[in-house]
């Protein structure tokens, strides 16, 4: 909702945030619908739609990423971070 630059084919995930950037989660979804999908676990950890996240740091290989959520910081691999759309 906060995403101003959003165009029709440009869906951003939290992996696309730059350091220090804030965003509000709009959806948690996975490309594959396998039972191994991390979505529910990500939500259980606190990444629920409507929550504000902030990119705290990126590791040297830009993977994993450190994202703040609900008063703490969680390191996520890029693959997982891409499931969280903003």
């Amino acid at each position: 909702m906060i995403n101003k630059k959003k165009s029709s084919d440009d869906i951003r995930s939290i992996a696309d945030l730059s350091c220090g950037e804030c965003a509000v989660i709009c959806k948690v979804t996975s490309k594959t619908l396998s039972p191994d999908s991390p979505c529910v676990r990500l939500m259980e950890i606190g990444f629920t739609p409507g929550q504000e996240v902030r990119m705290i740091a990126k590791s040297p290989f830009s993977d994993p990423l450190a994202v703040s959520i609900r008063g703490t910081v969680i390191a996520l691999r890029k693959q997982e971070a891409e499931c969280i759309l903003v």
Partner: peptide
């Protein structure tokens, strides 16, 4: 077999 993620909290 299961999901291999990181999802590691960086505590204060």
């Amino acid at each position: 077999s299961g999901p291999t993620g990181l999802m590691l909290e960086l505590p204060a």
